[in-house]
Design a binder for these strands. Structure first.
Lengths: 196, 196
DNA sequence: ACCTGAACACCGTTCAAGT
DNA sequence: ACCTGAACACCGTTCAAGT
């Protein structure tokens, strides 16, 4: 034992993140733990702390991977033929797809709060910004002024998030899964009608 | 020991909920536990399980109290002189106040997910519905058709939640606390302009 | 009937000790 | 330098035993 050196530091990092993701997908966040991840990758729990600051740090990196995956999925699925209002609408439906298809990972993205004081690291918020840029682009093609385009994009982006979040967690009084798209449609349609 | 009978079942229930709320407010959700609640009220942890199903059940009841409190606060603070768009806008700003003033409790409301399968009990979703009725009312005075008024109210309500949630948790790229009101204003103003 | 105390099976985190 | 194993201080939950 000790000093096996089977894997490099970066390899272990990847193994931890991937094992954590698999466990969350199959058993949920509450079914995941540092010990279970360690067992899954064939190392002792102490090894995780050579590579990550703490358990929150592991979750943060899993979330980072989720954001990367969403960016890939969404940017690949974008229909380049659409433009304007239709493009924005299609984009938000793609986010809805991501959320429903990877529910557990998507939940961890928003519902896990890091220790109160420390804010999200900039390399992480940059991933958010990158994903957001997919929304900003079609909005800028609709509206000429850059500042108001950004405000509009933020508003619709966050608004759509709220609809998806509350509906998927059953907190949006009586709204069933099937009606989410109606609300998203209402949001985009009417907001943009008002803004243009 | 045993069979003290100092407090009735309902009294203990209240003590647990209130102690839990105090701990969450001062130490956050991660600082709260069944054991700490028990210690705070001078009982053993086992006693909590005579009165509640499990720890999730305790949090659910704390959330129920939070919802009751929000209903009281908001319905008392409503300016009856306002109407139409202004009334809706003022209402969402009152929610923002609730969220910022009771951050920890407000977080638990949305960021704590009960065990995957079981959905929220109806006595709980009724409290959500009651709070939502405060939003529905002014919307119905703006729009005649009841169904579209409800869709509009749901959309704005959930949309505002998304803006508040993402902004307060630092997940809405570069949006500072001060800009939340701008986004809320943009949401309500433009959405209603489109809908009317 | 009500409450305790102790147990069970877990946690995240640390770190001396081995190779 | 890397990894283990064991410890520490916690968890939620259960339940026989006491009054």
């Amino acid at each position: 034992m000790a000093r096996r050196n089977d894997h490099s530091r970066d390899e272990i990092k990847d193994m931890v993140i991937n094992a954590g993701r698999r466990i969350i997908v199959s058993d949920g966040l509450s079914g995941c733990s540092a010990r279970k991840i360690a067992q899954e990758i064939g190392y002792t729990v102490g090894t995780l702390y050579n590579v990550f600051d703490n358990y929150d740090d592991i979750l943060l990196h899993i979330n980072a991977d989720t954001l990367d995956g969403m960016y890939q999925t969404v940017s690949n699925a974008i229909d380049r033929d659409l433009s304007g209002v239709q493009a924005v609408k299609a984009l938000l439906l793609l986010y809805l797809d991501c959320a429903t298809e990877h529910r557990a990972l998507w939940s961890v993205l928003f519902e896990y709060n890091l220790s109160e004081k420390t804010s999200l690291p900039s390399w992480y918020t940059q991933k958010i910004e990158l994903l957001f840029s997919l929304m900003l682009k079609p909005m800028q093609s609709i509206m000429k002024d850059e500042a108001t385009a950004r405000t509009a994009a933020l508003t619709l982006w966050a608004g759509a998030h709220g609809i998806i979040q509350l509906a998927l967690t059953g907190r949006l009084a009586k709204v069933k899964q099937a009606n989410i798209e109606i609300l998203l449609d209402s949001l985009v349609e009417n907001y943009l009608k008002g803004v243009l």
